[in-house]
Design a protein around this nucleic acid. Sequence first.
DNA 1: TAATGGGTGCACT
DNA 2: AAGTGCACCCATT
Lengths: 475, 475
Amino acid sequence: MNCVSNDDISVPEGSPVSATMSHSGSNEESQPAALAKDQNKLIHLDPIPDFQDKGEIKPWLQKIYYPQGIEIVIERSDRLKVVFKCKASKRGKNSQGWAATKSESPVSLSKQPVLEGSKKKRSVSRFNLCPFRIRATYSLKRKRWNIVVVNNSHSHPLKFDPDSDDYKKFKSKLREDNDWEAIKKFDELEYRARSNLPIESSVITCDCGLTNEISSFNIVLPSAKPTMINKPKSTSKLRQQRKETFLKIPQQHDFLPNTTHVDSPTVSGFIDDLSLDQPFAALSTATDAFTDLNEIDFTSIFHKPQHPHRQHERHSITGTPVPPNVFSPLTNSTFQYYSPTDELLNSPAHQRPPSVSTHHSTQLVDICEKQSWDPHYNDHSQDSLATPLCEITNSDMCRADTPQRGIGDVLSQELNAIKAIDSDLQIIDESMSTQIFHRSGFDSESPWTPHDQLTQDNDEDSNDKSFWDMNFARQ
Amino acid sequence: MNCVSNDDISVPEGSPVSATMSHSGSNEESQPAALAKDQNKLIHLDPIPDFQDKGEIKPWLQKIYYPQGIEIVIERSDRLKVVFKCKASKRGKNSQGWAATKSESPVSLSKQPVLEGSKKKRSVSRFNLCPFRIRATYSLKRKRWNIVVVNNSHSHPLKFDPDSDDYKKFKSKLREDNDWEAIKKFDELEYRARSNLPIESSVITCDCGLTNEISSFNIVLPSAKPTMINKPKSTSKLRQQRKETFLKIPQQHDFLPNTTHVDSPTVSGFIDDLSLDQPFAALSTATDAFTDLNEIDFTSIFHKPQHPHRQHERHSITGTPVPPNVFSPLTNSTFQYYSPTDELLNSPAHQRPPSVSTHHSTQLVDICEKQSWDPHYNDHSQDSLATPLCEITNSDMCRADTPQRGIGDVLSQELNAIKAIDSDLQIIDESMSTQIFHRSGFDSESPWTPHDQLTQDNDEDSNDKSFWDMNFARQ
DNA sequence: TAATGGGTGCACT
DNA sequence: AAGTGCACCCATT
Ligand SMILES: [Zn+2]
Ligand SMILES: [Zn+2]
């Protein structure tokens, strides 16, 4: 199936993937193969600017991930790739999150008592164990940077900390770059965070034109959890919901994380550090409980698509430009597909109006916010089990319990079919990877900044039609 | 006892340290406390130049350690400290040592099979597990850099690789600095290495004036191994031997490592990474056997002391200036003492002629060379068990078997007595640390470079006699 | 404070 | 693809 051209992509049902899912939720870490199915989720993908320099990538990602409460750092880089991960939390005592964060290592290293004096050479705090990765790779062929979210799950609560040093640097860079649009957005975000206003999910548009195809995939790849599995079964149904929510979203906020809880259900996969087995296993119980409730029904995940347009800003429905963003993962599948770039833009999918997603389930939203998005979280309860972040499980983190792998193989089979249809769609066998699409041939800067410089208005003022505009912008 | 003023320091015998040693060699990793005793050794200490810049330290240490077959890298540094360790061997496939080295990780990670998919975030190759550390710390009070060898043992064979990139950089820097003396020495070393000539230990003098005191300590702190324990019991006896060997040393070679095998006997201590327990345990048997035979009788370790003098070059007894160097560790004790700087120089010890050390035991030397110093090692057998480096154990490495700690406490008690006598002598409770002495108040460059500048000819055409010319030029 | 220990961001290899 | 050299940090005493 061609993910770009087919709206009602039915890849999932009856596919090997489905079979895989059937027993994915049952065992914890005992069944590597079984759990592997639960590891991945899909995330929304963004059109990737044609970065002219490696250094442009991080700021672009930061614009996307800061609002999600994720502070990224570079794990490794070279001329051909940059791997990002969550910043290891090691808050200074002066930061407001100090009391909460400093309890991390002791909490996370529950196994330490078992092995006295155990020390790993690197990566000690549990924050550092987070499997979440974003991989940017430069294609010499395409002469473009491509970005893939390798594992869209987290072993820790997500929070936006407007006081973090890195964020301050990021913010000051925005000023340097005169990226007023982004500055406004983040000012708003900061305000909300500092005011303890819940950072509700809002529409974060994407002009990649592939949003609904991706959501189709989500449907196809249900999570192991019953809650996840039930809801979205048909693409069309999903799309319906999206549209419903779509209309109201803009009214809510201009600037918000697309997804409150990026974590996936049973998730975990990808933590391949042996030494972590024990700690994770120890926490699996609480986590599982948490995960179940924390599952975001993916029918509500993809909210607000817009017409994709080639080079620039997505505009929120409310008339305010919406920053591009990555959506949260929905299923535990492992796969990656690759943006066909220009060819893709011409696919039928682009003609159809994209569905919009937002949190339509208030219940789920609440949980999510409590979990990782409620700004209050930053102030008091973070990382404190006494003041449970998650009221349901009393767990302070949404962690991946069992490191597992293997679903990639299953998915790759499924996806190979797709590949056959659209040669530009590349499936990466690598386990648990999802991808942010990019479109090639455009020299747009960061998606947040329209390539013709933005004024500082939030409304639509992009001059040429971008992919997103053409396909999804409703107006 | 004052280590500086007393030649025949008798600190050791009958001390808690001795008691400690009694059972140190018995258990492997099961008894942390017991094994702790075997962990450390002493090393010879050098006068430390008054580094004006942090960056001067590494080259200085490289001059000392390259000849010992140790390639150091910075593990961590900041304005107040620099921690060096052995470079993790990850030979490029193009380097001659490739075939041998690439087997490292599999060999070392014997536990991996146990835990499938286990990966540590950092430090994977066994080379990276080496406990050897050199710590340079800047004292704000003294306004000087002090250098301490924290654990003078290695988990791998030592070899000098004249083809390593780092060495080449080091060498080119010597040229930049017009450090002809050092260049000559290293040219000689390279020649020997490439010619597969054994790099025999030669006299590397030290003008710190504390050399014999240190050797006294060695005597005092026998290793857990019987071979170690028996030999050196009295300082005077040791000194005798040193003098004997001293006279012949110069004749042997021009440029050589003071000690062929820096490894210590039962050694190990200091590897505090839990995940390493298994692999090490697995290898402990072979290692122990090896260690026993590989023990260098410390009566032969400290060969060639000299009269300590304040500012400059140490001159070998033969009349040639000898570069300062670090001697190999002898016992498994953990302690550190601190250079009293100027005060120390005035201690009685400085009046006595230092003893000279060299390998007087050919048997031991042979083993050592086979183990870590024979240049042939570089060419074929390195890291290959098939061509055992150590003919005795067929082990390719002298590794620390069991990570342990605790001896420091015992030793500190012992050393506190010393401290009481000489307030400048600082004992560090930290386990397994030895120290390189420094003298304060002098702006000497690297010890290898005579303070009056050398010219650049390798043969003797330097205007002023260089160390090398005076001592080793054969013609 | 000075000293000392360690985590980890990130690019080089 | 990842190990790891190195330095900018932070923590503790
Ligand atoms: Zn994370
Ligand atoms: Zn070493």
